[in-house]
């Protein structure tokens, strides 16, 4: 539903409707913010509490993955290295 509603939005609307410029600017930032909110709640919290500490293995793995992605732009390599960092930390601690 949400897919069709957004992808179909301006395909389905009659020609006279256009996107207001201000709204278009806001829409540009919404996806990035939504993804950020999900990743932040997934990785930086535990049991419904903020969890930002040296003991957060997922945080280190995510930081490592971010560096790899910025350097390489390679999604697979990024996931592989991120998961490796996480697994090593998890088994080590």
């Amino acid at each position: 539903m949400a897919t069709l509603l957004t992808r179909g939005s301006f395909f389905m609307l009659p020609a006279r409707y256009a996107l207001p410029a201000q709204l278009e600017r806001a829409l540009r930032y919404a996806p990035a913010c939504a993804l950020t909110a999900i990743v932040a709640q997934g990785v930086l919290t535990r049991d419904h509490r903020p969890f930002i500490s040296f003991g957060n293995d997922q945080l280190w793995a995510l930081l490592g993955a971010a560096i790899v992605f910025v350097k390489s732009r390679n999604m697979l390599l990024t996931i592989a290295i991120g998961m490796t960092v996480f697994t090593v930390l998890r088994l080590w601690a």
């Binding site: 539903m1 949400a2 897919t3 509603l5 957004t6 992808r7 179909g8 939005s9 301006f10 395909f11 020609a15 256009a18 996107l19 278009e24 829409l27 540009r28 919404a30 996806p31 913010c33 939504a34 993804l35 999900i38």
Partner: peptide
């Protein structure tokens, strides 16, 4: 859940607005 999916998909509104002429 639904609103979240909508937010993540909002970029498609821009895609659709940009390429609609060819399909309108």
């Amino acid at each position: 859940v639904w609103v979240t999916a909508l937010l993540v998909n909002l970029r498609f509104v821009i895609f659709a607005a940009a390429s609609r002429r060819s399909f309108m």
